[in-house]
Amino acid sequence: MVEGLAGDAVAHAALLRAVAPLLRAFYRRRVGHDDAIEDLVQETLIAVHTRRISYDRDRPLLPWLFAIARYKMIDHFRRSGRTGPVADAEELPAATDTEEQVNARLDLEQLLSTLPERQAGLIREMHLEGRSVAEIAHRSGIGESAAKVSIHRGLKALALRIRQVGQ
């Protein structure tokens, strides 16, 4: 982010590319329609870009990012006429997230993005959201054993990739 603020186009693009999957995961958990999710991701990326002056370099990035995402989500609900409670600020990543935690999440998302989308989604649900295999299988409409196998293979592929990166 800081290099992007300095006007480095490559770093700026890398940042936007890195946060896009985080935003997609954020909206997927909270917004129903798939086409709305990608619109919201794009709107948020534009806001991150045009309003980057509002980011304070001395403060953690994620609370800033997700506050923008949340604002865009509320705006979306307002336009589409949905009323009712919206996920609270408490659910957002803690303001105390350290840079290391942020980097770890970004690394993880980057690794997951090397897997097929469906498989990455299963792993996310199982290991990041803590759902049970039965629930995941039911939600994605596949058999339990198929889900298990897919997750297992996905994790194996990730492990292999980490070893490759390490060498």
Partner: peptide
């Protein structure tokens, strides 16, 4: 698509001094 959008945004990036 989102990748094209990101490229377009990055092309217009100007420095924001601290």
């Amino acid at each position: 698509n989102t990748d094209a959008l990101i490229d377009a945004l990055a092309r217009t990036v100007t420095p924001v001094p601290a």
